[in-house]
């Protein structure tokens, strides 16, 4: 999962400065490790360097009476990069992909790019396609027990993701409410 894309999605809805972005991130991903301010700063610098974000304005500490604050906003290239990222399903891997899927759902809501329900449906299709392949492999007449067991392992993880997606799909409205108000 990419912190850069998450920050881009936060910027897509509203320009912000480093500390503001960190707070919004931590609010929306309560389970994730809080972002270090240094990480936010370096990521924003990299985004600016790549032309995905730009400095909107810099407040002089003399004027506001606080520390120097640089407000960033997303660029056209940044919007494109974000859209590309959001339109890709997460690889249906045996290692739980749920946190990245969750990140994308929240990012879609925060940026307003695309429909989270559509994303979840596509993701479900991607997961099921992988599960069909695994199931076919394990029910093949010549499948060894090791192959069956390893397929089972992957299937159960993918299944867990799917369950999470199903319940999330049914709670999207409430989640949208939460993302909007935070």
């Amino acid at each position: 999962m990419s912190t850069a894309h998450i920050l881009l999605s936060l910027l897509a809805s509203e320009a912000g400065h480093g500390y503001d972005l960190k707070r919004r991130h931590d609010d929306r991903f309560p389970q994730a490790r809080p972002l270090a301010y240094g990480q936010v700063y370096t990521t924003l610098q990299r985004l600016t360097r790549d032309g995905l974000a730009e400095v909107a304005k810099t407040e002089d500490p003399e004027d506001s009476g606080g520390p120097e604050r640089t407000t960033y906003r997303i660029t056209e290239a940044g919007v494109q990069a974000l859209r590309t990222w959001l339109s890709e399903t997460v690889p249906a891997a045996p290692v739980s992909a749920a946190s990245e899927i969750f990140a994308k759902v929240v990012a879609i809501m925060a940026s307003g790019f695309g429909d989270p329900a559509d994303f979840l449906r596509d993701q479900r299709a991607a997961h099921l396609t992988r599960m069909r392949e695994l199931t076919a492999a394990k029910t093949a007449p010549n499948a060894t027990l090791s192959a069956v067991l390893s397929a089972d392992y992957a299937l159960n993880h993918l299944d867990a993701d799917l369950r999470w997606m199903d319940t999330t799909a049914q709670r999207l409205d409430a989640l949208a409410q939460e993302v909007r108000t935070s």
Partner: peptide, 12 residues
């Protein structure tokens, strides 16, 4: 209602 069972199918 079980995705692991649905995965036996060609289509969902």
């Amino acid at each position: 209602h079980d995705a692991q069972v649905a995965a036996y199918a060609d289509r969902e």
